[in-house]
Design a protein around this nucleic acid. Sequence first.
RNA 1: GCGCCGGUAGUCUAACGGUAAGACUCAGGCCUUCCAAGCCUGCGACGCGGGUUCGACUCCCGCCCGGCGCACCA
Length: 494
Amino acid sequence: MASYEDVMSLSVRRGFLWPAVDLYGGFAGFYDYGHNGVLLRRRWEDRWIETFLGLSDNYYLIDTTTILPEAALKASGHVDHFTDILVTCTRCGESYRGDQLLEAATHEEQEGLTTEEIDARIQELKIRCPNCKGVLGPSREFHMMFPLEVGPTGKDRAYLRPETAQGVFLNFKREFEALRRRLPMGLAIVGRAYRNEISPRQGAYRMREFIQAELQIFFDPATFGDAVPFQDIASVPVRVAWASEKHAPTAHDAPAKDLVGHGLPPWYVYHLVQVQRFYLDLLRIPRDAFRFAELDEKERAFYNKIHFDIQVRQESLGGFKEVGGVHYRTDHDLRGHEAGSHAKQSVTFGTSKLVPHVLELSFGVDRNVWALLDLSYAKGERVVLRLPVQVAPVPVAVFPLVNKDGLPERAEALYAGLRKRIAAFYDDSGSIGRRYARMDEIGTPFSVTVDHETLEGKGVTLRERDSQKQIRVKEGDLATTLNQLLSGEATFPA
RNA sequence: GCGCCGGUAGUCUAACGGUAAGACUCAGGCCUUCCAAGCCUGCGACGCGGGUUCGACUCCCGCCCGGCGCACCA
């Protein structure tokens, strides 16, 4: 159980994460990572890449620009759908979205109107503030995307990318050729994206600059179902909350085949299971703190035919919070770019010619890092960060029991040898208990202590963080033992 | 963006219209045969700007930042 203050205070104190530019009072919606935060985040990213690119031989990482010209984002729909016209009441100060006000009055879809057009329509329809009947306006544009002026004249309008996915879609044809025209093909990006959130809140949960890890899987909807080994996972229980029960504080288990019975495609459910495995088995998220939450038609984006949020329950954020999503985007994106660029996006695969469909596995990296900090936070007599072994920023610490009798020299020699293979950390300040406590706070799973028996050739002690138990390990076996523990091949006591 | 509350060392707290206090952390030292022991020494703070005042961390105004509620979150 960790409050928001608990997690934030530890993050700041121990070099994980803190508000950016706080020297100048801070910068809302922006956070900087410290040395342990970067290590934790990169290990999370490494595990993500291993897990999801590991789903197929034909899934790869690419890297694309963070700035995109207006034309590309026009075609993707972001220029129209990511820009709101806001109208503020002159009396009570409430703000409304102009298109929604007009739609409520006319019952017709209102899209792509300018501020002038919206003001004119409000006057014409005599729309007043729904809250206080005050006079509305004038309206103004609000961009969820950060606009940029590129080039000396600034006439080349561009934006910081609002999602990494577009970089993949823009490179689909190139990679389809380079990867020798095979489907399914997966392209992933781990990188930064930008949204001008109106009200950034709750630490790393809603930021204006954030890191996404997204895998876009391009497939032929006619054959994708046959390409995944659904039978292997048909009876695996999946944690789900349907749209109708999403506000309940829990979820329930349903066998994968029941989800298919509920109308979800087998290939979609197959990927839910893979995502669930990542969270439950690798990241060790408690089962009852994990779920897929279905979004109903109103909540999901217009291009998502099927959309489940990946949610993790976090005490610091007040319950289940979205850390990712599994989105069936159909052929919407490639068709959009085909229309916008006039470059054919259809491909010939086997005997059929098609515009591939897309399944997107999308993750907010910062949100995942925060969730790990939240769930790992254990407060007893002191704070222990029970991070899963495979993402811990510092996997191993080495100490001399006391600073005399040649123990520091012996411990330093051991450390020097160990760090050639393992990211180890050496400390000889304070007492042994204090050093253990320090490592516990940053989630170091294993500590090695050189004591007097070590000098007699009787090995070192190896301590586990969560149990505080110790075993003796021969110095010659130490690196191997640690590697097995850190890779998950062995469990303590090894 | 609106409303409410708040902002003091790295963290957590205190006090005061007149020299900003403490705990923990951290650094150095002594001591120490396994879980933040003890002792000594040291570093370190009033979010920013303006106003009132002889004097402002304290009162007033604006801004920034944060939490919560509303709105927003294709």
